[in-house]
Design a protein around this nucleic acid. Structure first.
Lengths: 131, 131
DNA sequence: CAGTATCCTTGGGGATACTG
DNA sequence: CAGTATCCCCAAGGATACTG
């Protein structure tokens, strides 16, 4: 979402804001505290700088994250969750729980689905090994 | 999601299952009870039969909806939420609430965003006029 | 009624190289 | 370090016509 949006239903707002291949990962990562651009790049190893920038800009425009430029040289910039971002975080946790249950369901039914990792102690956890 | 999926985090499972331009609408509509193919086509006016079929098949494969063929002529088929689908419904309601709050936030900030309609009396409401 | 079958378009994201 | 700039590709959807 960027400009002049008209949503059909509330869910679509939430989905629009979270959608983007890496946004959930970014938001989860920022749930652990402010992070710098390079850290995120190294953490989410499959993402390219271009795409990371895109997703960050969108999240910023949607008011979920705040970008802070420390105006230094060499440059230092970090990103953190805003109030909205933090409230979304709670929702993401519930979505995680549902997703984990659903994976269990699928596995019971013999479907080959795997979930790399999760952790309920506060928020989704990212062992560096899995990203 | 259809086959041999490997998810990074729980949220991604939920997002994968809901993603698809019309899935949220379909799930919300089915929240009102079983519906037939033609009804859905007429309700979600912008969707084409091909795409509706696609999305329904995916929801069915993911175990969120159940397709019942009454083996009649002329054909009669309906779709309803499964147990998983119903549990997802509760999550969708929370996502709706978050989305509605976020729209209020945006509007306070002067952004031009609109939300067609919502209703908290049980579930998202779809006045036929708006779809 | 409940779908298939075809053909076509679009934009989100990937890969890589470059810069203040 | 924190990004831009280019070029490229593919799968999700759209439009329309047809069928058991």
């Amino acid at each position: 979402m960027t400009n002049k949006k008209n949503y059909r239903i509330g869910v679509d707002v939430t989905l629009d804001v979270i959608d983007g291949k890496w946004k959930s990962s970014i938001l989860c990562f920022l749930g652990q505290g402010p992070q710098r651009f390079g850290q995120m790049l190294r953490y989410i190893t499959e993402i390219s700088p271009k795409v990371l920038t895109q997703q960050l800009r969108e999240l910023e425009n949607d008011g979920l994250i705040l970008r802070t430029d420390y105006e230094q040289n060499p440059p230092k910039v970090d990103y953190r969750l805003t109030k909205s971002g933090k409230s979304l975080r709670k929702l993401l946790i519930e979505m995680s729980l549902w997703g984990e249950n659903q994976v269990n369901e699928w596995q019971k039914q013999g479907k080959s689905v795997t979930l790399q990792t999760y952790d309920h102690s506060g928020f989704v956890k990212f062992p560096s090994s899995i990203i």
